[in-house]
Design a protein around this nucleic acid. Sequence first.
DNA 1: TTGAAAGCGTTACCAT
DNA 2: ATGGTAACGCTTTCAA
Lengths: 377, 377
Amino acid sequence: MNHRDRVRHRAPAETGGPPTRTVTLDDIARLVGVSRATVSNAYNRPDQLSTALRDRILGAARDLGYPGPDPAARSLRRGVAASVGVVLTETLSYAFSDSAAIAFLHGLTRRLEAHGLSVLLIPASPRRDAAAVRDAIVDGFVVYSMPDDDQHVSAIRRRNLPTVFVDQPRQSGSPFVGVDNLPAAREAARHLVDLGHRRLGVVSFPCRSDGHRGLADEDRQASPTRAVTRDRLAGYRAAAEAAGIAWIDVPVEERLRSDAAEGFDAGIALLTRPDPPTGILAMSDHLALGVIDAADHLGLDVPGDVSVVGFDDIPRAARWDPPLTTVQQPLTERGEVAGDLLLEALQHPGSEAPTRVLPTALVLRGSTALARTSDRR
Amino acid sequence: MNHRDRVRHRAPAETGGPPTRTVTLDDIARLVGVSRATVSNAYNRPDQLSTALRDRILGAARDLGYPGPDPAARSLRRGVAASVGVVLTETLSYAFSDSAAIAFLHGLTRRLEAHGLSVLLIPASPRRDAAAVRDAIVDGFVVYSMPDDDQHVSAIRRRNLPTVFVDQPRQSGSPFVGVDNLPAAREAARHLVDLGHRRLGVVSFPCRSDGHRGLADEDRQASPTRAVTRDRLAGYRAAAEAAGIAWIDVPVEERLRSDAAEGFDAGIALLTRPDPPTGILAMSDHLALGVIDAADHLGLDVPGDVSVVGFDDIPRAARWDPPLTTVQQPLTERGEVAGDLLLEALQHPGSEAPTRVLPTALVLRGSTALARTSDRR
DNA sequence: TTGAAAGCGTTACCAT
DNA sequence: ATGGTAACGCTTTCAA
């Protein structure tokens, strides 16, 4: 980014240096005939000088077009940025198409703005280097659902600032907020099993960040980089095996992102198998809604022919046709809690690093029903 | 915000000063036995020193727990922030419940992150002072739909950085992107008139930021602080008067925010009037959907008893029951264009300030229908 | 390949 | 009430 627009170069004789502001505190001071300190006080400590002088200073500043004390210089000197950095799972723009991320940011900003803190959204997609993280002028970080081995996360760790982790990774010594994914997923799967479903299918988040899309073999399932994926998979599996269903028989369709298009694609893949599942577990509502569309598209009835369970309970879930059975997690509240934890960490640096596990609940709606008798075993 | 956590105070004898970093470039330099400049080069210009030395330096940095060059100092010295400030109509958290704002941010971040720029969301609700704007360490600003007389906008103007205005205010000399609200609104109103509706009602954004909620008298209507409000009102009015409807007879319900709850409230107010409107114009889809709910609630059929037209065409509009007739504007694209304009302004400071007016289109769906014959005149 | 020095624009302490 | 002064931590030119 070129910066020359707000700068001017000093006379040619000048020793080469950084870009120079058009007008600084010094200029005002000189013009008014006071010291730099006094001008600074005019801005930051109005009570330290006479009203008359202050007005004279502010007037001169206006005349010269002085933009006010330079924020970077200010921040350097004071050691405070008045802002908080946020890194999110995917690209920034993706976050704005993901209801779960949006709800999180809603809760987070609600808390932070109450304290006058700005929120710096940092581009941290897997493909980018961590420069933006290293250059972020912030007082602390919020890490939202990032892979364990992510370079941005490492860079944040090195920054050594108060950091709150959401969902993932779990970082000892740092505040954490999330839900218990394994039991939540297990309950979702058990629900299908209890309805008599024996042929299950799963639509999963990526196991690795290698761009794979399709069936996840045992090897991939063994080592998902994201804990959310790992735990939900384990939960589904636990319930299936508890019901005597061999996990090897359960197709796990891995998809790159959590959106309806990917869900649709995965749904088609699952439902056109030779022996298609009658119960499908999706790791997010976005994916689940896509699966329902896929069933529709294939002329299958939900829940008549196939039951679908989501995860998150985004606002659209309840309004869908049929309304989606899903695992509800407190999306906005997670953001609020993350905000609270960070504020706490900023105010009391030395204090304990709390872990807050929020409750989930299986919400039964219209997208699941008893398996046909013929489909049971 | 307390900053002491990442700092230590030097020996007691130290002259009082700003908070001090635990370890700086200097410490590394001393430990390795080189100059500060060389350590700096190790980070910023790897080609300027031998690999061996570089490794020694980076190793020492790791040993000392050096967090890397301080971003604020860096930014001060280089004169670049690598970030862009954004201020939005309302509170930050509100933005995350407004589909139009979300779509805008989606488009904006898509463009900005491609250039490695971070996005600083600045709390700028009408009640806050402009401190967050003054302290924002950014290379430029995006102003999204703010009142003309807003103090944050004034503060941004004083900062004298490249700034793109979206919707409002229109600032001569600065890039602008928006739509032509007056003709768009006029078309929406004409649609109702063409369907035979003679008793109209309007659900409006706030005319002033004084917290008023309810019928807007002529005086209020005469001077809305926001151009969007002014222009849409003027458009509605033009179509009504062109059809011989006296504007004084058209109730304008002013509401504080653009959400379904406010729309519901306004819908109830309009539809329980002695001579209720048969055609309602809402300034946003969120409001319009609330109006439909209100009609439902009162046992009125949409569009049988009352027709409703929205504005924006948010994703939910097409999926609603009934699907909403509305004025479509390119929400995401607006964000992209804003991003492009700002990037351009950052790269070529002196250049022209383009104004981009994006197209709108009235989308006819199920929420509008012919007025009953008995209701016409 | 390395180092010395000159800033970047502020703020906060201390003295007057 | 006001000013002198010493940092804050870094980057860059220029010379060696």
